[in-house]
């Protein structure tokens, strides 16, 4: 399986990363090698095998539907790089 640079650029966008030309070169080569190695999974017969998403297969963990104290707004916002007293601030999304 070979990965093209165009494909890797697309993955970078999906990953919300921006890579320099040099980074793209390295990572294209690295991913090709790693994916080439991972391709050996194809040789394992998995017919009728249920996928195992979790080590401990517990489902539906319930708790009482009761409210309790939560993080005060001020503390929740304290780590945001850009915020006012009410919420997170981001660059304009509309009107471009």
């Amino acid at each position: 399986m070979s990965l093209s640079r165009v494909e890797v650029e697309k993955v970078a966008l999906l990953s919300r990363l921006r890579l320099s030309d040099a980074e793209l070169d390295t990572i294209t080569a690295d991913l090709a090698k790693i994916v080439g190695y991972v391709d050996q999974l194809a040789e394992v017969s998995t017919e009728g095998v249920e996928p195992m998403a979790h080590a401990i297969e517990i489902t539906n963990v319930f708790r009482d539907d009761s409210s309790s104290e939560s993080l005060p707004r001020e503390e929740a916002l304290a780590n945001a790089p850009h915020h006012d007293t009410r919420g997170y601030l981001v660059p304009a999304v509309l009107g471009e």
């Binding site: 890797v8 993955v11 970078a12 966008l13 990953s15 919300r16 990363l17 921006r18 890579l19 980074e23 390295t26 990572i27 690295d30 991913l31 790693i34 994916v35 981001v90 660059p91």
Partner: peptide, 20 residues
């Protein structure tokens, strides 16, 4: 903004695994 923030903040191994 997302792309620049993440690319400045993450190192090469983390980027590699996110991409993979």
């Amino acid at each position: 903004m997302y792309r620049r923030s993440r690319s400045e903040g993450f190192g090469p191994e983390v980027k590699r695994r996110i991409m993979l």
